[in-house]
């Protein structure tokens, strides 16, 4: 349990969430005892490489994990006074889109290609909010205008393929926010976009969040995106939380070797130009060697140990607990934080 989970500001409280998959190679844990919470109006970043369990975490919260092969094996997700893991599927359908919305990397996964944008937004509004048709249409136009889609009166009559990638992403955000959800889960919302459009979409999410007070869970593998958008960050590896901190603290004092590796591998603008050298060889980027293990090959002990330069026998023998550091709100699961700390 998080220390502040009882504070009135918490909108979503995830405790010990565990999701398993049955694969041909055996049973594996995609999410392994994950706990976190998120406050009203806050943006929580979840970072980690592909395959670390970020999307399955999001799908588990919404109970959308494909089953079989998936199964939410344990844990609770409290929204207000309800545990989403315990309510009926009917109640859950009401939660989705209404209390918690999700946007995906590929907007076409949530936009229906054969229905107009207007229809798709108004359908949600009519179902969840019981608006009349003309009210819903007016609101749909308003939402499209809010996400800065030009000529929204015309766009409501158009189909998703008539929009550019960036505009589709905006339309999906409009749809996700149309019922004013308490929590928005954005799963790699900008990964497939140009940096310029990414900047626009991130600005948009920030702006809407400030205006509507939505809590945002922003899933990404890009620490640059996290630095610009999140207030608090969770670093995930192999289904577990390995570090958690306020964003400034995470970047100023990264504790886990995995976090440090991720930070070092981000190419930074100006990193080579300041050097003022005549050497024309490209600068080397720091790498994390190896890859995220498949579900059925997650090492016992610290899952990161095989890729970690600091790993010792202790790391392969036992899983390190998540512990407080000297920095407020900053926790890490590593046996050697003392060696890692600057």
């Amino acid at each position: 349990m998080e220390t502040n989970s009882q504070s009135p500001e918490v909108v979503l409280d995830v405790d010990n969430l565990t999701t398993e998959f049955q694969t041909p190679e055996g049973l594996g844990r995609a999410v392994d005892g994950l706990s976190f919470n998120i406050n009203k109006g806050e943006t929580l970043g979840i970072v980690g490489e592909s395959g670390c369990g970020k999307s399955i975490t999001a799908l588990s919260i919404l109970r959308l994990v494909p089953s079989p092969p998936g199964n939410i094996a344990g844990g609770s997700v409290r929204l207000g006074n309800r545990d989403l893991m315990q309510i009926s599927e009917r109640e859950m359908r009401d939660v989705r889109g209404n209390d918690i919305s999700m946007i995906f990397q590929e907007p076409m996964t949530s936009l229906n290609p054969v229905l107009t944008l207007g229809y798709q937004i108004t359908e949600t509004l009519r179902r969840h909010e019981g608006l009349a048709k003309h009210e819903a249409t007016a609101r749909a136009i308003e939402m499209l205008a809010l996400v800065q889609i030009p000529a929204p009166e015309r766009r409501v009559k158009e189909f998703p393929h008539q929009l550019s990638g960036g505009m589709r992403q905006r339309a999906m955000i409009a749809m996700a926010l149309s019922c004013n959800p308490r929590v928005l889960i954005a799963d790699e919302p900008t990964t497939a976009l140009d940096v310029t459009v990414q900047a626009q979409v991130l600005d948009l999410i920030k702006d809407l969040q400030e205006r509507l007070g939505t809590a945002v869970i922003l899933i990404t593998h890009d620490l640059g995106v996290v630095a610009e958008t999140a207030q608090r960050v969770i670093v995930m590896y192999a289904g577990r939380k390995v570090e958690e901190a306020p964003v400034e603290s995470l970047f100023a004092n990264p504790q886990h070797p995995y976090t440090r590796g991720l930070l070092a591998s981000v190419p930074r603008l100006g990193a080579t130009t300041g050097a003022h050298s005549s050497d024309s060889r490209p600068a080397r980027l720091a790498e994390i060697s190896g890859i995220v293990p498949p579900l059925t090959e997650i090492p016992s002990g610290c899952a990161f140990a095989p890729r970690c330069k600091q790993a010792t026998e202790k790391c392969t023998a036992a899983q390190p607990p998540l512990e407080e550091t000297e920095h407020p709100g900053h926790r890490v699961a590593c046996w050697h934080t003392d060696k890692v700390a600057v």
């Binding site: 310029t196 900047a199 890009d222 640059g224 630095a227 610009e228 970047f251 930074r268």
Partner: peptide
């Protein structure tokens, strides 16, 4: 250049965003 996310949360810059496509 402005659009590249900066991996440093202490830099809260206001940018002139490139609008549109």
């Amino acid at each position: 250049l402005d659009a590249v996310p900066v991996p440093d949360p202490t830099i809260k810059h206001t940018r002139r965003r490139l609008q549109g496509d």
